[in-house]
Write a protein that binds this DNA or RNA. Structure first.
Length: 779
DNA sequence: TCCGGCTGTTG
DNA sequence: TCTTGCAGCCGGA
């Protein structure tokens, strides 16, 4: 029979020493199904200088009885665009491929072993065009359901192709666990799980520990089996909840049997994600990581930022107080609400992130559970691997390379002071368009001849035919254009939302191509390519600036692909000239009513004609300054841009400094957040956040590379770093070094702006009278 | 006082 | 574990 299946995930298992593929999905009729395919086998290629019986015989000699080599075929494929002779070697057990790679590489005449590191289920998905988050029409036959928790089990006879259709309604389950942590960081071999909260489209529910946690873990597992979610979402669940749950089940000698395959446990995969057979286990933290506006990516911060759970509406408990709330009868209610608020936040964040995730999964071909955890580089790479298959291009191996530095974008010297009426114009997707226009890539790099020659660095790229990157980028840009056209003609809201997320995914992918090319670990790495892209970028932006000057504009500032212009010229005619000159699209990004620059590059603040205030680069938008300093700087900027009043700004600063001295602000306004970019013992100097981290570790907190350290500076003598203390150790602001906060945080942040108006530090700090100020400004 | 380490930011 | 350019703080010499 013919079935249309929306594919959730593709996995495999072994049966009697042979692999079989499981395609997990939802049918058009809404059944949850698994489609089995037993005839796919792992393979890889040898690139050879010449075909020959001797090589083939030698390959046969290496055949292992447990996983024999079952076929050897000659073929021709492309390697960096050039045709090469290959031998395709097929075996039985996916894990044996790695061993064969090592052995066969030594055969004389074999230049390289390639595509031996493509995961088996991905290999199937690519070769058979069974791509996750797509509807696939297939011919199937029904099988016995034994061993699977699904409505139907089928065996795959034939894949007929992809059907363009909106995703089905999926069952989503959000969960969050709380654990006992009286002794600092929780230890899963000691501290039990005290609460497990869940939420789906029907209900909210909590499992609360009585006695030990064995019972609630079992209840949670059975709840999952009963509700039968397609997608399970958590927040940092791959980093915390799943490993914790699994360790607890191990201790109790029970299984976390929650997959759609009977007797399967969550299993840790390549990117550290936990895969659950037949379901997509998605950790939303992976999507939250791309929100650069939120510095500390905690669930409450992200949920507050995205408006799904405002901070003032939720129960707020510091994580080191959980045990206290648990132990006190009268406080436990509050802890339960805290847990449920986390679960609700997770569920609602799912509504924000999942539609985008589904589109990105559909584009890259990575199942959503892997995608949520995979880095940008890996997402790009899987997309490229898929494209390579279509073009018969061999996927290059991953190589250990030394990173080589190269030059980046051009930054103009800013014109100091306040400017009125400034246009910001910028090239749309400059780097991908340069890559496309000049056909840049490792496969198009040539020594000379008829070619595009990059300025400064002089690398040459052949004109024709189009290289791998150019073809990919062209496809991404064209596809996005198509989606945008569709958006103009579609009224249905559900479809519009899907198309909106799709064009976002296409844009994200196109914009990541240049960074990927310059990434040393990329399979399609090209230092020359990346270097040429930025060199062309520099030339283009500088020439565009010259054109602007000739048209009567003054260059106030510019960075990489943007120019800040003021003057009497005609902006539309300028844009037309630049577009004609470079054949690249340029647009007015925004218009500033007022914009302010210091002498520093990459730092400015502006008031747009829509009344919006932009702050770029300054302390106010950095995560490693105390909130109090950021707040004052932001307000000073606002006063200056909106009211144009330096006096008002100074008055406000004085008042705030006075209030700090009088202890009128909450402790959290003084916390400084910095992350540990290295393991703690790798540091050469004892920086404040490193010292604070060490103190926290001594208290039993789990701190490692990547942790965000929140600390305050205490009053007292000695080095700053000796007085840096984890914020949760400090109870009162009377313990803080308020002079540090005034002299080293608030005043410098404010002076960064005000010194350009002749204000001195002394004037800010002295409790002066209004009269002094006025006279000062009259000078 | 200067330099290098360090972090977070920029397009 | 997608890129480079840049500002500015801190510790240590």
């Amino acid at each position: 029979m013919i079935k249309r299946i929306y594919v959730l995930d593709v996995s495999y298992d072994l049966e009697e020493g042979k692999p079989y593929i499981m395609i997990w999905g939802i049918s058009e009729e809404g059944e949850r199904v698994v489609v089995i395919y037993k005839d796919f086998r792992p393979y890889f290629y040898l690139i050879v200088s010449e075909w020959g019986d001797n090589i083939e015989n030698e390959i046969k000699n290496y055949s292992e009885p447990d996983s024999p080599i079952i076929s050897i075929e000659r073929g021709v494929r492309k390697y960096y665009g050039k045709e090469v002779k290959v031998i395709k070697v097929t075996t039985v057990i996916p894990e044996s491929v790695r061993r064969y790679r090592e052995k066969l590489k030594s055969i004389k005449g074999v230049e390289e072993v390639v595509e031996a590191d493509i995961y088996f289920s991905m290999r199937f998905s690519i070769d058979m065009n069974v791509i996750p988050c797509n509807w696939i029409e297939m011919e199937v036959e029904r099988l016995d359901k034994k061993g699977y928790r699904v409505d139907n089990v089928y065996v795959l006879k034939k894949v007929r192709g992809i059907i363009d259709k909106n995703p089905p309604k999926m069952k989503v389950l959000a969960f969050d666990i709380e654990v006992y942590n009286k002794y600092g960081s929780p230890d899963s071999s000691r501290d039990p799980i005290i609460i497990i909260g869940v939420k789906n489209d029907k209900e909210e529910k909590q499992f609360v520990m009585k006695g030990n946690d064995r019972e609630i873990i079992n209840s949670f597992a059975s709840y999952i089996r009963d509700y039968d979610p397609d997608i399970i979402i958590g927040y940092n669940s791959n980093g915390f909840d799943w490993p914790y749950l699994l360790n607890r089940t191990k201790i109790h000698g029970v299984k976390l049997d929650i997959g759609r395959k009977v007797n399967s446990q969550p299993n840790q995969g390549v990117y550290g994600h936990f895969s659950i057979q037949g379901r997509l286990n998605v950790d939303l933290l992976g999507f939250a990581m791309s929100i650069s506006e939120v510095k500390v990516k905690s669930l409450d911060n992200v949920a507050d930022y995205l408006g799904v759970m405002p901070r003032e509406k939720r129960a707020n408990i510091e994580w080191n107080e959980i045990a206290k709330f648990w132990e006190r009868e009268e406080k436990r209610e509050e802890l339960l609400k805290y847990n449920m608020d986390d679960v609700r936040s997770t569920y609602l964040l799912g509504e924000v992130f999942l539609p985008f995730g589904l589109e990105l999964s559909k584009l890259t071909g990575l199942p959503l559970d892997q995608l949520s955890q995979a880095s940008v580089g890996n997402r790009v790479e899987w997309y490229m691997i898929r494209e390579a298959f279509k073009y018969n291009e061999i996927v290059p191996n991953k190589l250990e390379r030394e990173g080589e530095e190269y030059g980046g974008g051009y930054v103009f010297e800013p014109m100091r002071g306040i400017h009125e009426g400034v246009y910001v114009i910028d090239f749309s997707s400059m780097y991908p368009n340069i890559m496309l226009k000049y056909n840049i890539g490792p496969d198009t790099l040539v020594n000379d001849g008829d070619c595009h020659r990059a300025p400064e660095v002089n690398h040459c790229f052949r004109m024709e035919p189009k290289g791998f990157y150019a073809r990919i980028i062209e496809r991404l840009l064209e596809e996005r254009k198509k989606v945008k056209e569709m958006l103009n003609n579609v009224n249905d809201n559900a479809t519009r939302k899907i198309l909106e997320e799709r064009q976002k995914a296409l844009k994200v992918m196109a914009n990541a191509m240049y960074g990927y090319m310059g990434w040393v670990n990329a399979r399609w790495y090209s230092k020359e390519g990346a270097e040429a892209v930025t060199a062309w970028g520099r030339k283009i932006i500088r020439e565009a600036a010259e054109i602007a000057k000739a048209e009567g504009f003054i260059i106030v500032y510019g960075d990489t692909d943007s120019l800040f212009l003021k003057g009497k010229g005609d902006i539309n005619s300028l844009i037309a000239k630049i577009e004609e000159r470079f054949e690249l699209e340029i647009k007015v990004e925004k218009i500033y009513k007022r914009v302010f620059f210091t002498k520093a590059k990459k730092r400015y603040a502006g008031l747009t004609i829509d009344g919006k205030i932009d702050i770029v680069g300054f302390e106010a938008v950095r995560g490693d300054w105390a909130e109090i300093a950021k707040e004052v700087q932001e307000r000073v900027i606002e006063r200056l841009l909106v009211e144009g009043s330096v006096e008002q700004a100074i008055k406000m600063c004085r008042e705030i400094i006075r209030n700090i001295r009088h202890g009128k602000y909450e402790l959290n306004k003084f916390v400084i957040w910095k992350s540990l970019e290295k393991e703690i013992n790798q540091y050469e100097t004892e920086l404040p956040h490193v010292k604070a981290a060490k103190k926290a570790m001594k208290m039993g907190f789990l701190i490692k590379k990547g942790s965000k350290i929140g600390f305050v500076i205490l009053r007292g003598k000695g080095k700053l770093s000796d007085r840096a203390e984890p914020y949760y150790n400090v109870k009162s602001i009377s313990d803080l070094d308020l002079d540090y906060y005034i002299d080293k945080q608030v005043v410098p942040a404010v002076m960064r702006i005000l010194e350009y108006f002749g204000v001195t530090e002394k004037q800010l700090k002295e409790e002066g009278r209004q009269g002094d100020l006025t006279s000062f400004f009259n000078i």
